[in-house]
């Protein structure tokens, strides 16, 4: 029975216990962040002035206590997770799509256009990453959308170079020649032949982008350039936590621990995807 390469890869992925366990863990965290707040009658921005800096008490209204504004820590961490995870996945998706299209066009076109497009990538690589993000988010007027756009804009470069290399080798293959002889336009060839054939690569590298985007967001929020109070994100929660870690480690431990778990599982999921789609033996 002939099985499609995708199903074979899926079967290989499912055999990788670590990757499957990490996928489940990640799904659990996502569910917690998005569904958890529904079970609380208040939001993470509401202050409970009767319970300021409440300690951990699993059977009270605030299971993980409150911060010094009386805001529920667990709900804040879950809401922060919504922000971080959304930016992470949408950001990786956007960066992957932009990079794929850019790289596919450059690699397929070749010649002068390719050189010009890659020179632009080279220049952008020359920008120190933080600086580019900060400049861009300033240019776009600050705020969450600007932050998102800036992160995406700095992370599409690597997928673009990877896809370009792939597109270059694809452009020389017979079936592209056949498509051209059959009268397909260049746009159609890029969209119907080049892009689909780079999808596996993009999926594998895209899975590596997710943790990178999440890390960028939380790191910028930590520095005070990203998501700003009172809105919560893991980055600014960790920043607030470090300020009080001497007296109350839980403010750092909860968001920090969740962020570490997410990065941990994404790392193994990416490894699993790579091994599944690229069965060349890796150790």
């Amino acid at each position: 029975m002939a099985r499609s390469p995708f199903r074979l890869a899926l079967a290989r992925f499912l055999k990788n216990r670590m990757a499957v366990a990490c996928t489940l863990l990640l799904a659990l965290i996502v569910a917690l962040c998005f569904l958890g707040p529904l079970f609380f009658p208040f939001t993470g921005e509401d202050s409970d002035f009767d319970n300021i800096s409440a300690p951990i008490d699993l059977f009270s209204a605030h299971p993980f206590g409150t911060d010094d504004f009386g805001r529920d820590l667990l709900v804040r961490v879950m809401e922060g997770g919504q922000v971080s995870l959304t930016i992470g996945f949408l950001g990786a998706l956007a960066a992957g799509v932009i990079g794929t299209l850019y790289g596919a066009v450059a690699g397929f076109a070749g010649g002068r256009l390719d050189r010009l497009m890659m020179a632009a990538v080279e220049v952008l690589y020359g920008f120190p990453y933080v600086i580019l993000v900060v400049l861009l988010s300033m240019l776009l007027g600050g705020g969450n959308i600007a932050l998102f756009a800036a992160i995406v804009f700095t992370l599409w470069l690597t997928p673009a170079t990877i896809v370009r290399a792939q597109a270059q080798s694809l452009a020389r293959r017979e079936f592209i020649e056949a498509a051209r002889a059959g009268g397909m336009t260049n746009t159609a060839i890029v969209l119907q032949h080049i892009v689909p054939n780079t999808m596996v690569l993009v999926l594998v590298y895209g899975s590596l982008l997710v943790p990178e985007v999440i890390l960028s967001e939380s790191f910028l929020s930590f520095l005070g350039i990203g998501i700003k109070e009172p809105q919560a994100s893991w980055g600014n929660l960790i920043e607030a936590g470090t300020a009080q870690m001497e007296t109350d480690l839980r403010l750092l431990a909860l968001p920090g621990g969740l962020l570490a778990l997410v990065l941990f599982s994404l790392n193994f999921i990416a490894d699993g995807l790579r091994d599944a789609f690229d069965p060349k033996e890796r150790l």
Binding site: G241, T242, M245, L252, A260, L263, N267
Partner: peptide
């Protein structure tokens, strides 16, 4: 290596300060 990838330096830094210094 897994720890180095999963725990970002802005968590590790403060924790190290807390433990080794304070």
């Amino acid at each position: 290596g897994v720890m180095g990838i999963a725990v970002p330096i802005f968590i590790l830094g403060p924790l190290a300060q807390l433990y080794f210094s304070l």
